[in-house]
Computed example of a mutant assay.
Amino acid sequence: MKNNPNVLIAPDSFKESMTANEVSESVAKGILKVYPLANIRKIPLADGGEGTIDALISGLHGEWIKTTAHDPRMKQISSTYGWIEDRKTAIIEMAKISGIELLSQDEKDPRITTTYGTGELILHALNRGCRNFIIGIGGSATNDGGAGMLQALGARLLDESGQPLKKGGLALSQLQVLDLSGLDERLNDCQISVACDVTNPLLGEGGATYTFGPQKGGSPQILDELEAALQHYAVHLESSTNRKIVDLPGAGAAGGLGSGLMALPNTVLQSGFDIIQEFLDLKSHIQWADIIFTGEGKIDHQTQYGKVPAGLARLAKPYNKPVIGLAGSVGSQTALLHDIGLTAIFSILPSPMSLEEAIKNGSQYIEQTSEQIMRIYNSKNS
């Protein structure tokens, strides 16, 4: 029997239940009941959305930076972003300042909401000496194509009277001049990685407006107006940057913020998981491990599209490491996940129960399930 297996614990959060850190702690408790001398590495992960800052701060020993910026309705509020001093790297989740969860139902209106605050966070990080950005885009309240973000960073968006354009997606229909020459010069010395877990283009039926606009308060008529405004904006954006942006996968993410960020120098759109695993050097931890635990709230056929368990399994497969997926709910069509490297998938729930009960006792169930899995592992390696 090996008394001290190397165990890598690298889950995503269980949405609305446990953070990735909390999941990791519960898995570790279960493992230690079977292997008190196990060597455990806990590396909480994320896919670019909620939890991205937590994952990178935890993995790279960073810190939280507090500041104030403008929310989607241009109200000044407190906000935060992550900072990794030795890498001069800022990790920004746009949802923390331009997100839909910051607004009440009555405040949602994609015609006037703006990404201006996201630009302010970028500017604040530049003032700290930032030279590398990871920007997670998702959960936005906006449909302005990143125009507000560009304005905060020094771009000029003018109407036919030469006046600065109003904030919000609808105002883009009045755009006559998009001048990027005033963008903060320090951006030229920065690398910007945009963590994006959707592949929507900017325009069209599968674009920013029609795909995500309804959840932001857009009626069919409003969506048609916003789409026309984005089409007008897109012409200026591609002309000003001399780049083909509109059809890039991810350009439509976060109400088109993906497209606006592509107007900045040295910017790349990537899967959130890919960015995080590179920064954390996840491959080296996989090579070290004898067995790997991962998980998320629900594992199903959608997990293969950029989610943490699938990304981790793909990385581990060439090394023939067992990868165990834990979830509150396991959906159908998971055979594909086994093909890409997930050895086995377990629901943590011991019996049928309400969602409220599952959330309340989630940490206990994860601990119990992890213990039982390690008892199986023990029997095979004793």
Score class of each variant (00 low, 15 high):
I112W: 05
T113M: 13
T114H: 14
T115Y: 11
Y116C: 10
G117R: 02
G119R: 01
G119I: 06
G119D: 09
E120R: 03
L123N: 06
L123I: 04
L123R: 15
H124K: 12
R128Q: 15
C130M: 00
C130W: 03
N132A: 05
N132M: 07
I134P: 03
I135H: 10
I135R: 05
I135N: 12
G136K: 00
G136Q: 01
G136T: 07
I137M: 01
I137D: 00
G138E: 01
G138D: 02
G139D: 01
S140C: 03
A141T: 08
T142G: 10
T142R: 09
D144T: 07
G146A: 14
A147F: 03
G148I: 15
L153C: 12
L157C: 04
L157Q: 03
L157D: 10
L158K: 02
E160I: 00
K167W: 15
G168P: 12
S173Y: 12
S173F: 13
Q176G: 04
Q176D: 08
V177W: 09
D179E: 10
S181T: 15
G182N: 06
L183P: 13
L183D: 12
L183S: 12
R186Q: 14
L187K: 10
N188E: 15
C190K: 00
Q191G: 13
V194Y: 00
A195F: 07
T199N: 08
T199P: 05
A208Q: 07
T209L: 13
Y210T: 08
Y210I: 12
T211C: 14
T211R: 09
G213L: 06
K216Y: 10
K216Q: 09
G217V: 08
G217N: 07
G218I: 04
G218Y: 05
G218E: 08
S219R: 05
S219V: 09
P220H: 08
I222F: 11
E225G: 06
E225F: 04
E225P: 05
E227R: 07
A229D: 10
L230D: 02
H232L: 13
H232S: 13
H236S: 07
H236E: 12
L237M: 03
E238A: 04
